Simulated scan of single mutants.
Amino acid sequence: MKAIEITGLSFTYKGSEKKAFTGIDLDVEEGSITAVVGKSGCGKSTLLRCIAGLCPRVYQGEMVGTISIFGEKISSISHVSLSTIVGIVFQNPATQLFSPTIEDELAFGPENLCIPREEIGNRMNDVLRIIGLEKHRNLNPANLSGGQQQLVAIGSVLTMKPRILLCDEILSWLDLEGRKAVRDLLIELKKHGTTILLADHRDEKIDIADKIVRL
Rank of each mutant, 00 (worst) to 15 (best):
I4D: 01
E5C: 06
G8V: 14
G8T: 10
G8Q: 06
L9F: 05
S10K: 02
F11P: 09
F11M: 02
Y13F: 11
G15A: 08
S16T: 13
K18N: 08
K19Y: 08
K19C: 03
K19M: 08
A20D: 00
F21V: 08
I24K: 00
I24E: 00
D27F: 12
V28C: 04
V28M: 04
E29V: 14
E29D: 13
E30A: 13
I33F: 07
V36I: 15
V36C: 06
G38M: 06
G38L: 09
C42W: 05
C42Y: 07
C42S: 13
G43K: 04
T46D: 07
T46I: 10
L47C: 11
L47Y: 05
L48N: 04
R49D: 12
G53V: 01
L54W: 04
R57E: 10
Q60D: 12
E62V: 01
E62F: 03
M63P: 08
V64N: 10
G65N: 00
I67D: 04
I67N: 02
I67G: 02
S68N: 09
I69V: 11
G71V: 00
G71R: 08
I74V: 08
S76L: 08
S78L: 12
V80M: 07
S81L: 08
S81K: 15
S81T: 00
S81R: 13
S83N: 06
S83G: 11
T84Y: 14
T84I: 01
I88R: 06
I88Y: 05
I88D: 02
I88G: 04
V89M: 02
V89N: 00
Q91P: 03
P93G: 03
A94N: 12
L97D: 02
S99L: 10
P100Y: 01
P100A: 13
T101D: 00
I102S: 01
E103K: 10
D104E: 15
L106V: 07
F108M: 06
E111N: 06
N112D: 07
P116T: 03
R117P: 13
N122D: 14
L128C: 09
L128M: 07
L133G: 03
H136F: 14
R137C: 12
N138R: 11
N140E: 09
P141R: 00
S145G: 00
G146I: 05
Q149I: 04
Q150D: 06
Q150L: 00
L151T: 11
V152F: 01
V152L: 04
A153T: 09
A153F: 08
S156H: 04
V157P: 05
L158T: 01
T159A: 08
T159D: 12
K161D: 05
I164C: 06
I164R: 00
D168M: 04
I170T: 15
I170H: 11
L171Y: 09
S172Q: 08
L174H: 04
L174S: 07
E177N: 10
G178D: 09
K180I: 14
V182C: 09
L185A: 03
E188D: 12
K190C: 14
L197M: 15
A199M: 07
A199S: 09
H201L: 03
H201C: 10
R202G: 15
D203H: 15
I208F: 13
A209H: 09
I212S: 00
V213C: 11
R214L: 11
